[in-house]
């Protein structure tokens, strides 16, 4: 408990009027806490962190923490991140996005950020729903589930965000649940230390919207569901696709080396100076 208090004092903005916007029982605070713990363990200075978000419940998180914080437009957080990182490469740029933020309105920016490989870490809050606007289906709402805009049932199929990031070229991709908060701490720490575009898909719960429409119970019930349906990636590799149906594969999905945009661009600068146009 003492440790927690220390982190609260060190990283939260005390001049910002609490209470925060998250509903009681929300998983978003666990993700923000995991980020703070990871940053504290690595020992980054607060001045070198830029925490950027888009729109939605996840978008409201940066305001509470004492970094350089930027709350952008819906889906565009990664584009702002790209500009900041390229203009000032010494900054550590971290982006919070929701599932709709990252893969609906910002889907194009997401895949291109992964392909481009600018050194930015993206932490995605996947709660399978648009929570802030009142529970409309998102690109990760599973087939057959209900939402306020899928009152009968949902007829589209969900994106697998982490797999999408792997395919698009991200150098580091992991997935974890908020239930396994310690695992999430460790995963975010790895992502922050990785050079290049890293993605952490965090499975969280929205018991207020998604859970309520689909009768999934309380926040605790949904956390237990996460616990009971998670399979570490090492174990998942030994299972068939039928056995993995509906399961959450957690851990590091990919960790690879690819050329980093800033390094490549530095070589362009050198070349441009050589030929001195």
């Amino acid at each position: 408990m003492k440790e927690v208090t220390k982190l609260i004092h060190k990283y939260l903005r005390h001049d910002k009027k609490f209470p925060h916007v998250s509903c009681p029982g929300c998983g978003n605070g666990i993700i923000l806490g995991a980020l703070i713990r990871a940053i504290d363990r690595i020992g980054f200075a607060k001045d070198e962190i830029v925490l950027i978000s888009g729109i939605g419940c996840s978008g409201r998180m940066p305001v509470y923490v004492d970094f350089n914080t930027l709350h952008t437009t819906h889906g565009r957080a990664l584009t702002f991140a790209t500009g900041i990182k390229l203009a000032k490469p010494e900054l550590t740029v971290i982006v919070f996005m929701g599932d709709g933020d990252a893969t609906a309105i910002g889907g194009n920016h997401f895949i291109h950020a992964a392909r481009r490989n600018v050194d930015v870490s993206a932490i995605i809050f996947n709660n399978n729903i648009y929570g802030m606007t009142g529970g409309q289906f998102s690109p990760t709402t599973p087939y057959g589930m209900k939402a306020t805009t899928a009152p009968y049932w949902h007829i589209e199929h969900a994106f697998k965000i982490a797999e999408l990031a792997v395919t698009a070229g991200a150098v580091f991709v992991g997935r974890e649940t908020v239930y396994n908060a310690k695992g999430l701490d460790a995963l975010i720490e790895k992502a922050l230390l990785k050079k290049g575009f890293s993605v952490v898909e965090t499975i969280t719960h929205c018991h207020i919207q998604y859970g309520r429409y689909n009768r999934l119970g309380t926040a605790v019930d949904m956390l237990k569901w996460q616990r009971d349906n998670s399979i570490p990636v090492e174990k998942a590799q030994k299972l068939s696709s039928e056995e993995l149906e509906g399961k959450i594969i957690t851990g590091v999905l990919v960790d690879r080396e690819l050329p980093i945009y800033q390094h490549e661009y530095d070589r362009i600068r050198e070349r441009a100076r050589e030929i001195a146009v």
Binding site: T79, A81, T82, G83, I84, A87, K88
Partner: peptide, 10 residues
């Protein structure tokens, strides 16, 4: 978005 980001970085 990138233009605004760069400007915020100075």
């Amino acid at each position: 978005g990138a233009v605004i980001g760069a400007s915020l970085a100075g």
